[in-house]
């Protein structure tokens, strides 16, 4: 029942109306170029995937997703790259690596999902609108302290996203167990971690700026 629901949702999401046929020959070439670039960034060859579905069957977030991780790669194979970039699946991926560990063809789906998220962020078309925001806050958080500080992370995310009380219900229990320490722990090499993250973010910004295609896509 739920899969049927997801399927319907997927169709409606994909095309705006149920089962509108797509013409594979009429998709613009920019899609193929973008797909090639993003797949190269992820180190994934979509032709490796023969769609057995072993990844999707073991995916812990499939219940919440619009399309399965198998379908993400299927869309890329078909040249429907924009549909893959604008799907929710890459944002929901927790990079647990179950799919990769089980994949007979060693397709690195977590890497592909991450690359799709970056592409969506560059284009400003993230299907989970809080996704890029969370990523930024998370990186800031780690960059500053050298380690993740859950309390600060949650507080900043809730304030920025407007979901003021998201997950707040769990706070008392966590506090009672000492999980929200707030003791300001900083690892000794925190500065080094911060520098590393800054370096990588600068690199990503530079890559994004030089990427005319992406700008073109953003403009469109």
């Amino acid at each position: 029942m739920s899969s049927l629901f997801l399927q319907c949702r997927y169709r409606v999401w994909r095309t705006g109306d149920a089962m509108r046929p797509i013409n594979l020959s009429e998709e613009p070439a920019t899609q193929a170029q973008a797909a090639k670039r993003v797949c190269a960034e992820a180190g994934v060859n979509p032709a490796d995937c023969y769609q057995c579905g072993k990844c999707a069957a073991g995916c812990p977030v499939s219940e919440s997703a619009d399309i399965s991780c198998r379908q993400v790669i299927r869309l890329i194979q078909l040249g429907e790259f924009d549909a893959a970039v604008t799907s929710r699946m890459p944002w929901l991926c927790v990079a647990c690596g179950t799919c990769l560990a089980r994949c007979p063809q060693s397709v690195d789906l977590p890497a592909l999902n991450a690359a799709l998220c970056r592409e969506a962020a560059r284009r400003g078309c993230a299907a989970v609108k809080e996704g890029p925001l969370f990523t930024d806050i998370f990186l800031d958080n780690v960059q500053k302290r050298g380690v993740m500080d859950e309390t600060m992370l949650a507080a900043r995310f809730n304030l920025s996203s407007g979901h003021l009380f998201q997950d707040a219900g769990g706070a008392p229990t966590m506090m009672a167990r000492g999980l929200l320490s707030g003791d300001g722990y900083r690892p000794s090499d925190a500065a080094e971690v911060g520098a590393m993250i800054e370096r990588l973010r600068a690199q990503a910004r530079a890559a994004g700026a030089s990427d005319d295609e992406t700008k073109e896509a953003q403009r469109l």
Binding site: Q7, R11, M19, Q51, Q71, L78
Partner: peptide, 9 residues
């Protein structure tokens, strides 16, 4: 596999 009616010219 993608649950889509597709056409090819």
């Amino acid at each position: 596999l993608s649950d889509q009616v597709v056409s090819v010219n």
